[in-house]
Design a protein around this nucleic acid. Structure first.
Length: 563
RNA sequence: GUCCCUGUAGUUCAGUGGAUAGAACAAGGGUUUCCUAAACCCUAGACAGAGGUUCGACUCCUCUCGGGGACACCA
């Protein structure tokens, strides 16, 4: 049970009883701007509810056993809690719950599928895709921490025109070339070249069209080449997921759903949900202010919504979902509104959510394969990895190469994930690799460094980190209380991050917690304190480390003991 | 033209309708006989504009201006 929540509920409840109303809500209770004012604050401006004389109310709150003092500042009722009580409660809860601290059950095990990292085959996997991957992975973990049964999946478009374009260019320009080791990466380059070459090439476009038809017919050498090259990118994405430590429940492919999709389209035409128009088949959603969605082009080929409908149906049936979440960049907002409307018209009742995030830009402008303004996942990872090797070697010249590499890998992945999730989803990320390589300030390195510091103190203390009990009376420093109060807020941060789908809340909280700790670290000595106090402080450190670790988990970040 | 997102220090970002708008980076100055200086401390600096709702607005509403995106055969 979340202690701060319980306290807020108790305060609200006691006031409601006294006022004989039900108007005071736990959510109304806020945190004062600075610590001298108290721990909690209730604004009492509403005369209808609180009346003019607040002194009776302060007396009531003051009577609660976890309250130490209540004061009025204008119409704000500022409440100071019994510090010893809070310290005892919070630390013992963290030490008892460990990895479970901060989790809640509000999701009621609802079956929730999160679809993300929908990169196409045959294309480059660049930092834009990386944002989607990191965001989706974190959303999955956050929802899981809020009690949802989560199914992270990916849906790959392996069957569009981009494939034919790539195969065309492969044949046209790379016929005699040896294929490099990283075939997936190579294929991405081929696709980039194809888009560029095809801009002005009419004959080429015709050839591509012809190839697409053959692939769709699923026979001939084009189809075989499709199978072969498709596998190249699939292997590459698997490698990326492994490196990034992202686990998916399942990967769906468009080619598996296109036939069923066409069958659904035929049914929907009969049901008049779809209709023919100007030679194409469309969903006319004008009366819902959602415009028109082309479903089958006038040449009979399917747009991507066709397979999407079949996929939605398969998801609902096979996984018995309560909620289906799609994560893409924000350009697709309209498309998903249209698709959700069609699914609703068909009669599906599942909750459908489209989460969007904005783009990743580079300092030189938009990411575009055509202009070569692009950073691929591999380039990003390698740049980080090498820089961290250098930095780590500088600090630990006695470490074995292998040990340095392990740390560099964890830090590289952590940096990527943190950079992608520390900014709100509806902000454009201008990804500056120089800044990402600086490791100062609001960075994953700062957070992991804080964690490593705590671990280092433990190591030097000679104690194992299995402290069972903390003598809370010995934690009397103001900074200690501040740290613990910050720890107490963690569960509500998890809840908010889940309700609002905001990994950035977690990132920010962790940074603030780390700042609080580093401040404490510089002012208060742990190991030099007298024995009893030392033990209590080690217990506090253990709690801080645990919350950091739990929060890292929600961002998909692993820890290092030393760095 | 319609719709969606967005505008906060030099830069990149925070800010469930609450009190004195917070950080980080960059800039300048300081802290290592002291648990890892990938750290800490100090200095300077901002709500695009105008109305409205409210006891109270960076936050909600309207308009103007600026940036990004989507709107029938690209996904």
């Amino acid at each position: 049970m979340n202690i701060l929540n319980k306290i807020k509920n108790d305060i609200a409840k006691s006031l409601n009883i006294a006022l004989n109303v039900k108007l005071v809500k736990a959510q109304d209770i806020v945190y004062p701007p600075n610590a001298e004012m108290g721990d909690l604050s209730l604004p009492c401006f509403d005369q209808q509810v609180f009346g003019d004389d607040l002194s009776k109310l302060t007396a009531i709150v003051n009577g609660l056993d976890f309250v130490k003092g209540v004061s009025l500042a204008g119409k704000f009722m500022n409440i100071s809690l019994d510090k010893e009580y809070i310290i005892k409660k919070i630390c013992s809860e963290i030490i008892k719950d460990k990895k479970k601290y901060g989790r809640n059950k509000s999701g009621k095990k609802k079956r929730t599928m999160i679809e993300f990292t929908n990169a196409n085959t045959h294309k480059q996997y660049h930092v834009g895709h990386v944002r989607n991957l990191c965001f989706g992975d974190s959303i999955t973990k956050i929802l899981n921490a809020n009690g949802y049964k989560t199914f992270p999946v990916s849906y790959i478009n392996d069957f569009g025109t981009h494939v034919a374009k790539t195969l065309w260019a492969l044949d046209e320009f790379y016929k005699d070339e040896e294929i490099p080791e990283n075939k997936g990466e190579f294929l991405g380059e081929v696709y980039a070249r194809a888009s560029k070459e095809l801009e002005e090439n009419k004959l080429g476009k015709q050839m591509v069209e012809g190839m697409m038809k053959k692939i769709e017919a699923r026979k001939g050498k084009e189809y075989e080449k499709w199978q072969e090259t498709r596998q190249w990118t699939i292997e590459q994405s698997e490698q990326i997921y492994r490196k990034m430590n992202v686990a998916l429940e399942h990967i769906f492919y468009e080619s598996e759903f296109i036939d069923e999709g066409r069958a659904i389209v035929n049914k929907l035409i009969k049901k008049r949900i779809l209709r023919e128009s100007q030679g194409a088949v469309i969903a006319d959603l004008e009366k819902y202010d959602l415009g028109v969605q082309v479903v089958l082009r006038s040449d009979g080929t399917a747009t991507y919504i066709v397979a999407d409908l079949a996929l939605a149906q398969a998801k609902f049936e096979k996984y018995k979902l309560d909620t289906s979440i799609y994560i893409t960049d924000n350009r697709q907002s309209l498309h998903f509104k249209q698709m959700f409307k069609i699914l609703e018209l068909i009669g599906y009742k599942q909750k459908l959510v489209h989460l969007t995030h904005d783009f990743v830009k580079l300092p030189g402008g938009m990411i575009a394969s055509r202009t070569g303004n692009i950073i691929t996942f591999e380039e990003l990872y390698q740049a980080l990895f090498e820089k961290i090797i250098t930095e780590t070697t500088k600090r630990h010249d006695d470490w074995e190469e292998e040990r340095i590499k392990v740390v560099a890998h964890i830090l590289s992945v952590a940096t990527i994930k943190f950079e992608m999730n520390k900014i709100g989803a509806d902000q454009v990320i201008t990804f500056d690799i120089k800044k990402a390589l600086s490791f100062q300030g609001y960075t994953a390195a700062y957070l992991l460094y804080t964690y490593a510091r705590i671990k280092s103190i433990f190591k030097k203390s000679g104690l194992k980190d299995d402290i069972k009990k903390i003598n809370s009376k010995l934690l009397r420093e103001a900074m200690e209380y501040r740290l613990i109060f910050k720890l107490a807020k963690y569960p509500e941060v998890v809840a908010r991050a889940g309700a609002e789908y905001k990994p950035s809340e977690i990132a920010r909280y962790l940074f603030e917690l780390a700042q609080n700790f580093n401040d404490y670290y510089h002012q208060i000595s742990v190991l030099k304190a007298e024995e009893e106090i030392k033990l209590a402080r080690l217990g506090l450190l253990l709690s801080v480390a645990q919350v950091l670790e739990n929060g890292f988990g929600l961002l998909g970040i692993e820890t290092v003991e030393e760095m």
